[in-house]
Computed example of a mutant assay.
Amino acid sequence: MTLNYKKIGQGEPLIILHGLFGSADNWMSIAKELENDFTIYLVDQRNHGESPKSDEWTYKAMAEDLAGFLTSQGLEAVNLMGHSMGGKTAMNFALKYPGKVKKLIIADIAPRYYDPHHQSILEGLNAIDLENLSSRKEAEDTLSKYISEKGIRQFLLKNLGRNEESKFTWKVNLPVITEKIENVGEALQGNQTFENPTLFMRGANSDYIQDQDKADLEKFFPDYKLISIKNAGHWLHAEQPAAVVATIKAFLK
């Protein structure tokens, strides 16, 4: 699968993977703060952004997509960062292809299993009648019945695009994500380890990485550090961008 991506900057390669319902654009503001030090590849994962849609949606498939992306770009080894779902993809990739990853950064996700917890989002997105939708405001009005936080609604509606006939369409593969949402919570499998330096960044106000997860972090990533970003939740890069940029730079340098 040929993944869509955006490339900026100069220096050592750094690949950044977005989370569920996200896209490469989510990390552009962070990338611009790093472009003097790194060549940054912002990648749309399958079924997201401008990358192809597929009925297959697993971390194994997304890790293989990333392996193909490195080959297509002539990249032998990279620094790799992923947020949430992208972090799980990055972990799976590093465990299978440890020689291709110099340093690994995981943003607010642990190796363990997560129960499905996106049901209200999926219900809201599926309630939007694309065939008869006349405006983005109408879409947000429908979504507001399911999701009270305006910022989350605006983030989700970045996935609303138009096709060649100017009709509204989803950039994400909503039917497949709805059907296979349990896949996104899957735990890391096997006994492989990634021995290179690994940084886990967690939002201090988020419960995605808990202290009891440290045993799993050490099991799979023995050379790991865990840093909490103050005054940040799960969307730490949007809530505390300066702290996230400083943490990334310090770790990679």
Rank of each mutant, 00 (worst) to 15 (best):
K32N: 11
K32L: 14
E33N: 12
L34W: 03
N36V: 00
N36D: 03
D37C: 02
F38Y: 15
F38V: 05
T39L: 12
T39G: 07
I40W: 04
I40T: 05
I40V: 07
V43K: 05
D44A: 13
Q45A: 11
G49Q: 05
E50T: 07
E50W: 09
E50Y: 15
S51E: 14
S51F: 11
K53G: 05
K53Y: 09
K53I: 05
D55H: 11
D55T: 08
T58N: 05
T58Q: 11
Y59D: 11
A63Y: 03
A63V: 01
D65G: 02
D65I: 01
L66D: 12
A67P: 00
F69V: 11
L70C: 09
S72R: 04
Q73Y: 15
L75P: 00
L75Y: 00
L75H: 02
E76M: 04
E76R: 09
A77K: 15
A77S: 07
N79H: 10
N79M: 08
N79D: 13
M81N: 14
M81L: 10
M81W: 08
H83S: 00
S84V: 09
S84G: 10
M85N: 10
G86L: 09
G86K: 04
G87R: 11
K88Q: 02
T89C: 12
T89P: 01
M91R: 06
M91T: 12
N92E: 12
N92Q: 14
F93Q: 06
F93K: 09
A94M: 01
L95H: 04
L95G: 01
K96V: 12
Y97C: 00
K100S: 14
K100Q: 14
K100H: 09
V101I: 14
K102S: 10
L104G: 00
I106V: 02
A107Y: 13
A107C: 13
D108W: 02
D108L: 07
P111C: 05
P111G: 05
R112H: 15
Y113P: 01
Y114M: 04
D115P: 12
H117P: 08
H117W: 06
H118Y: 10
Q119G: 03
Q119L: 03
S120V: 10
I121S: 08
I121N: 06
L122P: 02
L122G: 03
E123D: 10
G124P: 02
G124D: 06
G124L: 06
G124T: 04
L125Y: 07
N126Q: 07
A127F: 02
L130S: 03
L130P: 08
L130W: 04
N132Q: 03
N132A: 04
L133N: 02
L133I: 00
L133Q: 00
S134W: 03
R136G: 03
K137N: 12
K137A: 12
E138Q: 07
E138A: 08
A139W: 15
E140G: 15
T142D: 04
L143T: 00
S144Y: 04
K145I: 01
K145E: 13
K145C: 08
Y146L: 14
